[in-house]
Amino acid sequence: MTRFSGSDRYIAPSDLQLAVNAAVRLQRPLLVKGEPGTGKTQLAEEVARSLGLSLISWHIKSTTKAQQGLYEYDAVSRLRDSQLGDERVHDIANYIVKGKLWEAFTADSPVVLLIDEIDKADIEFPNDLLLELDRMEFYVYETRQTVKAVHRPIVIITSNNEKELPDAFLRRCFFHYINFPERETLKQILHVHHGDIEAELVERALDVFFDIRQQNGIRKKPSTSELIDWLKLLMADEISREALIEKQEAQAIPPLAGALLKNEQDVHLLERLAFMHRRQKG
């Protein structure tokens, strides 16, 4: 199997590449954590793309049950069919709805299975998937059949750290924490997303960006995806772009800051800091 080494639209640092390759080689699920907006979900898409496999995503919500990933027994439509006298009602297999895991296990070629934001689910959720992820098989009680993976899928699990995951589950996974990218990596990422923007604009934007991230007391630090959005806005808006490059002292709030800061306390904090900054000057 070929090695994963990032792609033309996703910059993967070497340690991330190694983690992915180790997980692929040893057929273990890879658990990815990191600040929001560092590209955890996108990783699965890019792994699938660069290895030429198809991707099955299972997005987890607070109400998702592990069973839904395997299969669901649609009792309501069977009840309805029975009252309407439908012939289908005699075969219970007609009412078994396949889940994402079943889909991934029985696919014709190996697939990448993304279990997105596993921490959103109930605390028991990961425990209910232990055997399924370990042995890659499960038992369907209604039809008395065992579904076994034809090809073991490459499993990538993301978490935002909202819940502690159980130890037994962690032991079965490989783990990688996506660190917030450094300046050089960020430049590469910007290049991948926006192609050729003027170096000057990137430098200034990164200055402002890291300034804000380092500000004490900011509640929601802007992340990579917000930086990319902000630059998109700046490029569309000629005036604010010039304002940023010329670094006007009077206006210490960066133009279009709304793309970077997502709550009013942070905006107030920045305004206050700008005000104090001006007073010191004057």
Binding site: D15, L18, A19, A22
Partner: peptide, 19 residues
Amino acid sequence: VTFASMDDFYVLARTVLVK
């Protein structure tokens, strides 16, 4: 998965051992 590289071994060991 890794060759004779200390850095690679470090990342690999961290990926596998630390959760």
